[in-house]
């Protein structure tokens, strides 16, 4: 089985978000980048398929050379090969188009992406990839097993979960639950050394018009101070929630 894990390179979850160039660009100054958390769960599940079922795992990112350390980290965790598509990730659609090309060229059976990236929060790349390649698609995936070309997946739904059956080729939008938090791996020294020997191929961008364009960013208005209510006077809280906030 050939697995492609889509890796989005995103600001660390604790990053302060700022913008530059007249609020048109994300300011990367002082920002640490990491593997998108949803993709980290997916990558770890891919490692399980590699170790238990002999799968071959390639990681891919659509982005500038700045994202290569993130791909190297995925190689250090255990992926066999990496591909960087040398294109700026301008909108979800163009990323999906680039990924679809990688998938067609490489003949992958299973594509593991994340439910959403924590920077753009588009939640659209995996579904578009499935739509473009004609593969089956399971979103909000929290469990996956493959047997031959048959797949059984568990997905989170509002208020619970559902078990679905489908078949390869398959794209999933994964999230926490795909593996447990405690299963996530930190690259060790040996992994980091080995990653240096593994292939990181740079693929050329293709010509695609973006379907959406980012015009401007802004930050939410600063919040007013909290109103403290004494623990001895909870009637006041009830009153505030009813008469002032009007939420009960």
């Amino acid at each position: 089985m050939k697995i492609l894990v889509c890796i989005s390179h995103v600001p660390d979850t604790t990053s302060k978000i700022n913008f530059s160039e007249n609020d048109t660009k994300f300011d990367t100054n002082g920002v640490q980048f990491v593997i998108n958390p949803n993709d980290e769960f997916g990558l770890t599940r891919a490692m399980w398929f590699k170790e238990k079922q002999g799968a071959n795992v390639t990681v891919v990112n659509v982005g500038s050379p700045d994202t290569e350390p993130t791909l190297r980290k995925a190689l250090a965790i255990g992926a066999d090969a990496a591909i960087r598509v040398n294109a700026e990730a301008t909108d979800g659609f163009s990323v999906a188009k680039h990924l679809a090309k990688v998938i067609e060229d490489g003949g992958y059976d299973l594509v593991i992406a994340g439910r959403e990236s924590i920077d753009y929060n588009g939640g659209m790349v995996p579904g578009m990839v499935a739509g473009l390649t004609g593969a089956n698609f399971v979103n909000n995936c929290i469990g996956l097993e493959i047997d031959g070309t048959a797949a059984k997946a568990i997905r989170e739904i509002d208020g619970g979960k559902e078990t679905v059956s489908t078949s390869l080729p398959l794209v999933i939008g994964g999230q926490k639950g795909l593996v447990e938090e405690s299963d996530l791996r930190i690259p060790n020294m040996r992994g980091i050394m080995m990653a240096r020997q593994k292939p990181l191929t740079v693929a050329d961008a293709i010509d695609i018009a973006a379907e959406t364009t980012s015009v401007k960013f802004e930050k939410p208005a600063p919040k007013g101070a909290v109103k403290l209510v004494s623990a001895e006077n909870l009637d006041e809280l009830v009153d505030l929630l009813h008469n002032e906030a009007k939420v009960i």
């Binding site: 659609f93 588009g122 659209m124 790349v125 579904g127 499935a130 473009l132 698609f137 979103n139 379907e211």
Partner: peptide
């Protein structure tokens, strides 16, 4: 932006050649 709509919208976008803005 329900989980269901977020699941189907990217497929619909490809089907209609439409640009999609979420959230």
């Amino acid at each position: 932006s329900s989980a269901d709509s977020k699941y189907l919208a990217p497929l619909l976008a490809v089907g209609l050649n439409a640009g999609y803005a979420s959230n």
